[in-house]
C-alpha cells in the first residue's frame, strides 16, 4: 500500500507543483499577464488564484478516492 500510494502521491504532487511554479514565475517575471481578463470578466490573477485552490482540492479528493487503504482503515470509526 505504502509504495503505491507514495508513487501516486508523487505524481499528483508533481502535477500541482508544475501549476504552482508556473503561477509564481508568471507573477515574479511577467506580472502584467495577470491583468488580462480571459474569462467571465475576471482577471488572470483572480482566476489562477482560485484555480490553484480548487486544483488542490480536486487532486486531494482524487487521491482520497484512488489511494489504497490499510485493512485497519475500516476500524477507524468512520462510515462511508
Amino acid at each position: 500500500m505504502a509504495g503505491r500510494n507514495a508513487r501516486l502521491g508523487l505524481v499528483l504532487f508533481t502535477v500541482y507543483a508544475v501549476f504552482y511554479a508556473a503561477f509564481v514565475l508568471v507573477n515574479a517575471f511577467a506580472a502584467d499577464w495577470m491583468d488580462a481578463k480571459p474569462l467571465a470578466g475576471l482577471n488572470a490573477a483572480v482566476l489562477s488564484g482560485f484555480g490553484l485552490i480548487v486544483l488542490a482540492l480536486v487532486l486531494a479528493l482524487f487521491y482520497g478516492v484512488t489511494a489504497s487503504s490499510a485493512p485497519s482503515d475500516m476500524q477507524n470509526g468512520e462510515g462511508r
Binding site: 500510494n5 482520497g64 477507524n76
Partner: peptide, 19 residues
C-alpha cells in the same frame, strides 16, 4: 489518528476546510 489511511483522510478534510 489510528493509521495511515486516517492520516490521509484527515489531511483531505483539512485541505477542504482550509481551502
Amino acid at each position: 489518528v489510528k493509521d495511515e489511511a486516517a492520516a490521509r483522510k484527515s489531511t483531505i478534510v483539512g485541505i477542504a476546510c482550509i481551502g
